[in-house]
């Protein structure tokens, strides 16, 4: 196996997943709608005081993003598991972890990246300042790939289960906590005029760590789930 064919396999799988997703456009919108809906619920439940809303906005938006990312996770391996393609990946000559990474990247492009498009809107709705919205976008850009990568491990462990959804949230949510802490605090700090380079560096470090380790764990988990 040369590197060229490995790159080709990666690109082909990425392309295939993107095309598959684009052919089911309505499903693309669902996590976004969920993200917006959950965020809208908070002012209705708490009250419309602008000062209060802008104080809790970073946490709310990030928790909503976390839940949206978690709910969309199920689709990473589901259809491939059901039609048997996942088993073909397993016996293919390419290392499974690279194929897994391609699938996770595709999944993030489909479900994680669009969150960035509506996030400024939600920031405006919750009275975040311009600087905070910028910080929110940066943290979402660095944080949501980590959510997809960590989540993939959980999905790989539960893919064969009939009622994997609830268990998936039990497995994955505790692991999301560091991302939530650093990201929400970065947005809050930028609102207070504090520098956020430390937060961003830590989020980037989490991303690098997840990027290098999570595909291996996901591949191992898939092998167990499908055995």
């Amino acid at each position: 196996m040369s590197t060229a064919s490995l790159n080709r396999a990666f690109a082909l799988l990425l392309w295939r997943d993107l095309v598959l997703a684009l052919r089911r456009r309505t499903e693309l919108l669902n996590p976004l709608l969920f993200f917006v809906l959950v965020t809208t619920l908070f002012p209705l439940g708490i009250g419309a005081d602008p000062a209060l809303l802008s104080a809790i906005a970073p946490g709310i938006i990030w928790v909503a993003a976390l839940l949206a990312a978690m709910l969309s996770l199920d689709s990473v391996f589901r259809s491939d598991f059901e039609d048997g393609s996942l088993e073909q990946f397993l016996i293919s000559a390419q290392p499974l972890s690279v194929l897994v990474l391609a699938k996770v990247v595709a999944h993030w492009l489909i479900t994680g990246l669009p969150l960035l498009i509506v996030a400024p809107l939600l920031g405006l709705l919750l009275h975040l300042s311009g600087a905070s919205i910028g910080a929110l976008l940066l943290t979402l850009l660095l944080g949501t790939p980590v959510l997809s990568l960590i989540g993939a491990i959980g999905v790989a462990l539960t893919v064969g289960l009939r009622r994997g959804g609830v268990i998936l949230s039990l497995l994955v949510l505790p692991l999301y906590i560091p991302v939530l802490i650093f990201a929400a605090d970065a947005v809050a700090s930028s609102g207070a005029g504090l520098p956020i380079t430390a937060h961003l560096s830590l989020l980037a470090a989490l991303l690098v760590l997840a990027l290098s380790l999570s595909p291996l764990a996901t591949a191992a988990a898939l092998k167990i789930s499908l055995s």
Binding site: I153, T158, G164, I167, L170, P174
Partner: peptide, 30 residues
């Protein structure tokens, strides 16, 4: 929960082992 959810106990034990290892990497970070 994961151990209880998987019917085949050998698979369940191996799946939970992966989860425990992922958890152990994450505990210091958390």
């Amino acid at each position: 929960a994961l151990y209880g959810a998987i019917d085949d106990k050998r698979t369940a034990a191996r799946a939970t082992a992966i989860l425990a290892i992922v958890g152990v990497v994450n505990i210091p970070i958390i």
